[in-house]
Simulated scan of single mutants.
Amino acid sequence: MKKSLIALAVLAASGAAMAQSSVTLYGVADAGVVKLAGDKTKMGSSTTMNNGNSRLGVRGIEDLGGGLKVGFNFETGLSLNDGATVASGDGFWARTAKMWIGGNWGTFQMGRTLSPSFYGVAAWELTGITNYNLIGNTYGYGGGAVRNNSQFSYKTPDGLGGFSAEVGYIAKGNSATDQSKWDANVIYANGPIGAGLSMNKLSGGKTNWSLGGQYNFGTFAVATSYNARRDGVRREGFTIGGRAQFGAFTVTADVARDRKNDGGKKYTNFLLEGKYAMSKRTFVYVAGLRVDDKNNYGLGIRHNF
């Protein structure tokens, strides 16, 4: 762990000296008091009721000329409780380990990375995809995973009238379930409107999908979605919510209601979040999340660097 962090510091320090290149060290520190369903009240870092996972990452980019660029991104999770690595999969760099090459034609990337379905939901989700966001904790991201291993993906360039799309593929030989997978999104982001369609499918399985949209009036935003998780235990339903800003304070409320749930009864889940911005990089938050009749609470502070 110590050797890895020293290597990160060396990479960051050497970035300024690289011709046509840059290397950036970044991260998140997030900790607070949490009460998870069935557990005691305690300090929490990188839990469901933290705004986000504490992390440390390094990313780099090189300009190859002619509009062509190549880059990489490695990211690891950590706990502020004891300094231990927090796994989001196998390996030290389990949050992200990828490289990419891109130009005016779009971007091609390879590695472990956030799924296209995740980005499709992020285009409209009200809290900015917090750990306690309602959609992910109820239906997943387009019914699928947050991240994919061994993903090949292509993303269209920005500037297509607000539209973009990404499609990813994981070969059968790279899958822990020994199944190939495709994962895709279509996003529209233009002015006050953000919308996304997420879709993913394992070979031999059924297609999971999610369609959502947000309209931002300025100090107030509303969002709604319909979600269908069909691979495994079938669960479908909709969400509707709003976000209001009062100066440095923001409050968000979100509700999810099942229409179909083969795993049990149909649930009504909800989230209430309050945030106060102390600066552009630091804010305090309080949140309550009810998922499938289980209540969870969190109060914390987050700093981005």
Rank of each mutant, 00 (worst) to 15 (best):
S14R: 07
V23G: 07
V33M: 15
K40V: 10
T41V: 14
K42I: 07
K42L: 05
S46A: 15
G65C: 06
F72H: 07
T76D: 05
G77I: 10
L80R: 06
A84M: 03
S88D: 13
K98F: 10
N104T: 09
Q109N: 14
P116K: 03
S117M: 04
G120S: 01
V121H: 02
A122S: 14
N137C: 05
Y139S: 06
G142A: 04
G143M: 01
N149I: 03
S153V: 07
P157S: 07
D158E: 14
A165R: 01
E166N: 11
Y169L: 03
G173N: 15
S175E: 04
K181M: 09
Y188Q: 08
I193W: 11
S198V: 09
K206G: 00
T207R: 13
N208T: 06
V222E: 00
N227I: 01
G232I: 04
V233M: 06
R235D: 00
R235K: 10
I240Q: 09
D254N: 15
A256L: 12
R257Y: 04
G263P: 05
K265H: 11
K266V: 09
K266C: 06
R281G: 00
T282P: 01
L289H: 02
K294G: 01
N295V: 04
N296I: 00
G300S: 08
R302I: 10
H303F: 02
